[in-house]
Design a protein around this nucleic acid. Sequence first.
DNA 1: CGTCATCTTTACGTTAACGTCAACTTTTAT
DNA 2: ATAAAAGTTGACGTTAACGTAAAGATGACG
Lengths: 130, 130
Amino acid sequence: MTENLTPIAEMCAEFGVTPRTLRFYESKELLTPVRVGQRRLYTRCCRARLTLILRGRRFGFSLEEMRELLDLYNHEDQGTQLSRTVEVAEKRLAAMEAQRTELEIAITDLRQQLAWARSILDGRGTDAAE
Amino acid sequence: MTENLTPIAEMCAEFGVTPRTLRFYESKELLTPVRVGQRRLYTRCCRARLTLILRGRRFGFSLEEMRELLDLYNHEDQGTQLSRTVEVAEKRLAAMEAQRTELEIAITDLRQQLAWARSILDGRGTDAAE
DNA sequence: CGTCATCTTTACGTTAACGTCAACTTTTAT
DNA sequence: ATAAAAGTTGACGTTAACGTAAAGATGACG
């Protein structure tokens, strides 16, 4: 089977981040790549975690918030209090659902404003239907 | 009729922010409350803008990004190039729709992980895969 | 063998978005 | 009138999330 160990440059290209970012995440214990000598090699697990981290980032979650949640996805290391992690996850889920609701509103809102603005630009015709 | 001019403390309570935040937003030209003497009084318009700003903040948009977009909602001041604002808004809308898609995925994901975690906690019932 | 290219650690710099004084002025209450 | 409350303008401090530059280690290659 392919061992799937990826050097840092390749990871960066894959995820559109800089080496600094990956090392920074490691320093924050969000990623723990394998070491061969000094060099880092990222595993399949690292990829999964990084995906989650970047995803969270796009939703405005802090790295610290994501770190709490990552344990939930880390099926190997079950030393972490699973029950506590579940609590965190439940709150996170609620937050994300609330965010989705607000996002719907924001999108609807923005669409309306856009329609209005376009109707002004388009012709001076006040009403614009479809 | 009620002029609806709100002092800073009331605004803060209403929106759950500090005075510092409101003054900071003003310094960035995101808000322009009326002045009576030195004091600030926030109008209905300010409230609308602040709502949008805080909304954007929750989605990870920067204040600068929000500032660009606010012009779209500012129906009075049409000195701003409306067509350019519309372009900005279209991109913003696309970004938000993409974010919504990702949010759906993230929520589904998290729900699954939670279900899995709960099944472990609940009883030792479900079999551990490998 | 020497020379890149890539990677490493260390460490100081930067930006956004406020927090936190300090020193005044202005309102409001007593 | 006076004291407390509320608000104001600087100005410096802080935190998160990296950027960036310096100096050395390591592996590949002609």
